[in-house]
Amino acid sequence: MLTLPDKILIGGLVIVALLSFPAIRHFYPEGKRVVIELDGDVVGDFSLKEDRLVPVEGKLGTTWVKMAEGGVRIVDSPCPYKLCIKSGSIHRAGETLICLPNRVVARIVGVEEEAVDAVSR
């Protein structure tokens, strides 16, 4: 069913796709700061260079945001499903951790921050 050019094409495209993993990583540096939002308001802005444990008082209780080794994760939260904790650790600019029940968002930003994240519809 597959011709030889087919196989060469597919092989070539697989190589391009695999090479684009490190290429993309190269173009996007690690995030510099983490912004913590509660109900849409910015309540904290920290450098990722220092390790710290930040309590955020949300609707349901305290969400603990931990910064360590250049990454951010939520270590404890009063939400029912703990999705934010299961999301693990984030490192790169643009990545977010969201605890929807407690209205807490931890977002990594690069050097500069744009006013609008996304416009849709």
């Binding site: 597919i10 796709a17 695999l18 684009s20 993309i24 996007y28 744009e114």
Partner: peptide, 20 residues
């Protein structure tokens, strides 16, 4: 049109592999 952040291209390698 929608998300003017270069970060959207993070996903490109995964999409390309899956697309094959």
């Amino acid at each position: 049109l929608f998300i003017r952040h270069a970060e959207v291209f993070y996903i490109l390698p995964v999409l390309l592999l899956f697309g094959i």
